[in-house]
């Protein structure tokens, strides 16, 4: 649910009272609810619970040991570095793309939006592959790079590039519909009152889209820290050097070190839960703001 949808949601949720003619008998209702809960348990709740119980199976001491071990710590560090580079770059891109697309009319706009969506349609494995084809030893720039002793693939730059690619559309995708819905009257008013371009951007546009922006940042961060397929292709799996947290989980798992694998995995699962909590909070705030704005108009 995007922020735009969330505000709709709150609006419509206020008219819940349904008459008997447009609702189902009690037994139908509870059968449907039970079916849904069983389905979600099989695919979501039980696997999620398994991550934590498997991680703690050999006791709390083993759990902690698996996380503070040097290879795990270096994987955590690399994951944080990759997210810390990918996030601001995609943030700047998202803001620039949304500004151009939402505030101006130009030919080829819908084509541009489709192209921004492309990374969503590309398999993560292929996302990794394309960078190997360019920067790998047999790749376009391979020889040139090796002459200068620059490593991209099987090194940190490759991991960062793959992370940028898979998280590329998230922020732009969130901001474009939001800024389109808001129009440009407020910015034009600011301009008439003598504000400079950057002043308009920082004082009018950003405050207006701050919840959507935050929402996009949260999603980007979650995906950046959790990406597996794309990073797996470009990383080369060098322990302690080019392993991110998800790759470290895979190595431990393939070594049958299940307790340690699930311990590190539980950190990522915990991160996912925080992401969901933040996301719900942002949706709730955005919906509240939308309702307040509507009341002010009325």
């Amino acid at each position: 649910m995007s922020v735009a949808v969330a505000s709709q949601y709150l609006k419509y949720n206020t008219k819940v009272a349904r008459s008997r003619a447009t609702s189902e008998p009690v037994w139908v209702r509870w059968t449907l609810i039970a079916t849904v809960l069983v389905f979600l348990s099989l695919f979501l709740f039980i696997p999620l619970a398994a991550v934590f119980t498997e991680g703690l199976r050999k006791g709390f001491a083993t759990y902690i040991a698996a996380i503070v071990e040097p290879d795990a710590l270096s994987a955590i560090k690399l994951t944080l570095i990759a997210a810390a580079i990918a996030l601001p770059l995609n943030l700047i891109f998202g803001l620039a793309a949304a500004w151009a697309i939402a505030k101006f009319e130009f030919k080829g706009k819908s084509m541009l939006i489709t192209l921004i969506d492309l990374p969503f349609a590309v398999s993560p494995v292929i996302a990794g592959l394309i960078y190997v084809l360019i920067f790998g030893l047999q790749g376009w720039l391979g020889e040139w790079l090796s002459d200068y002793d620059i490593k991209v693939v099987f090194a940190i730059p490759g991991i960062v590039l793959a992370t940028i690619f898979v998280t590329f559309p998230f922020i732009a995708r969130e901001l474009i519909p939001l800024m389109q819905a808001q129009g440009k009257e407020e910015e034009e008013a600011a301009l008439v009152l003598g504000a400079s371009g950057w002043q308009i951007f920082w004082r009018v546009t950003i405050p207006n889209v701050k919840w959507g922006l935050l929402y996009g940042v949260i999603l980007t961060n979650a995906r950046a820290m959790g990406e597996f397929g794309a990073v797996s292709v470009v990383s080369g799996h060098i322990r302690g050097l080019t392993n991110t947290m998800p790759l470290h989980v895979e190595i431990l798992y393939n070594e049958y070190n299940y307790a340690a694998a699930f311990a590190v995995a539980s950190l990522l699962a915990f991160l996912a839960l925080i992401t969901l909590a933040l996301k719900s909070y942002v949706e709730w705030q955005a919906a509240k703001n939308a309702v307040r704005a509507e009341q002010e108009i009325e």
């Binding site: 979650a222 820290m225 998800p246 995995a265 990522l268 699962a269 991160l271 969901l276």
Partner: peptide, 13 residues
């Protein structure tokens, strides 16, 4: 909120 878990949970996990 948990319906979105597959978006947030790393695929390897």
């Amino acid at each position: 909120a948990l319906v979105d878990l597959p978006f947030a949970l790393p695929t390897a996990v």
